[in-house]
Design a protein around this nucleic acid. Structure first.
Lengths: 229, 229
DNA sequence: CCATGTGAATGTTTTCACAGCT
DNA sequence: AGCTGTGAAAACATTCACATGG
């Protein structure tokens, strides 16, 4: 992960209004990997998989996969395992990946540009539909088919386009202000690449992408010997 | 966050050979944020901080900070709090951030280029000292002062330069092979941007940077109403 | 006979709450 | 008087192990 911990984790799923059981966020965070792995199996023509086979592919235990799935229902066949296509579809539906989500990206440095050009979001249910930067050299240019807008228009565009997801790739100084303006427009999920902890209301989910912290935590485990530079 | 779970988490710290207490990886992963926040305080001229103030800045509880620190020693003064500079230095030392670590980067697409140009690694104890790509258009070019090498030289360069940390920014198809070759050269920590789970020996730590999974887990929490696309 | 789904047991992490030091 | 460091409790997460059903 990179992404460090400390992410705001909705206390309630506010998903289904009846007294639904509360599902741990850590389970929710594993589901995308299950989907990805199941899709790879389907693409390879494999139609059935046991919890143990799936676990080996992912690097977790079979019991964990069975327990995770049990929060949502019974999807397997005893003695047989899981239908790969069906399970991928089912989890995708739980995560609401069976639609395309419009996303706003703010910040167009090296990183923002790489994000704007990344081809992996679209097949994963996300489309960047608006890109913003501080007025200056970038505004007005076109990146990946989208005109870069001045971030004055951020809140209004988010409202108009009904955007619920934002990606922050600004310098850390602006990140909180951008988050506030996203939230004012109705954003409820923020992917934060800026190295700063965002303060957001309960109903907003934030995930941090923090490669520096990830590196800084791994050095703890590196064995003695060998220095250099 | 982003980074998904499922990271290989060394079962032992192999840090200090005597029967040292085992420190939870989740604690280790929080330490970089403590350092970052303490440094910001120091830079702002604040010389002392209580666990509660620090907790508020980071978005965790004061008890958690005190417990985390207690794994390593007693760094505070009762009635007073912690010396910001001293505590930043101490945690940096624990994480071995009081030196510069050479890093190898493999893969030079959009993302690899953004990583190569990122200015945040150097002040955070990491220097990219070698960049590799599959032979073709990129090899021989210079990015951020470094000549891009053919990845045939990967293992040898890692050995020669005593590199212990690798960053993988290749397509997922090559990621495992690159990881294997890094490990053959002595790499013990891998930051993996490719959307695939790497199989590595026990002694190697991996952290995943997986923005797609992060987004895909957040949609679960987005409230009803508002669609569009 | 195989593999799911799940109570119960175990292990891990967080939080409480307060004795003790400054 | 204020805040740390930490036992003990509570909350949370994982794993065991097996009854059950295809």
């Amino acid at each position: 992960m990179g992404g460090v911990l400390l992410e705001s984790t909705p206390a309630s799923a506010l998903f289904d209004s009846n007294a639904q059981q509360q599902i741990p966020d850590i389970v929710i965070r594993r589901l995308p990997i299950y989907v990805r792995t199941l899709r790879a199996l389907t693409d390879a023509g494999i139609r059935s998989v046991s919890s143990e086979e799936l676990a080996d592919l992912i690097g977790v235990t079979a019991a964990q996969i069975r327990r995770d799935l049990s929060y949502f229902g019974k999807f397997g066949k005893q003695g047989k395992g899981y239908d790969t296509h069906f399970l991928a579809q089912t989890i995708s539906h739980i995560l609401r990946l069976d639609r395309q989500w419009p996303v706003a990206l703010v910040g167009l440095g090296n990183l923002g540009r790489a994000i704007a050009n990344y081809r992996g979001f679209t097949p994963s249910s996300f489309s960047i539909v608006a890109i913003f930067d501080r007025g200056s050299r970038n505004v007005g240019n076109v990146v990946n088919g989208l005109e870069i807008l001045n971030d004055d228009h951020l809140t209004n565009t988010i409202i108009r386009e009904r955007i619920r997801i934002g990606i922050i790739a600004t310098p850390k100084t602006y990140a909180q202000e951008i988050a506030d303006r996203m939230i004012a427009g109705g954003v409820e999920a923020i992917l934060n690449y800026a190295p700063t902890i965002l303060r957001v209301p309960e109903k907003v989910t934030v995930r941090e992408i923090d490669p520096v912290s990830a590196l800084q935590s791994m050095t703890y485990y590196i064995s003695e010997r060998g220095a250099s530079s």
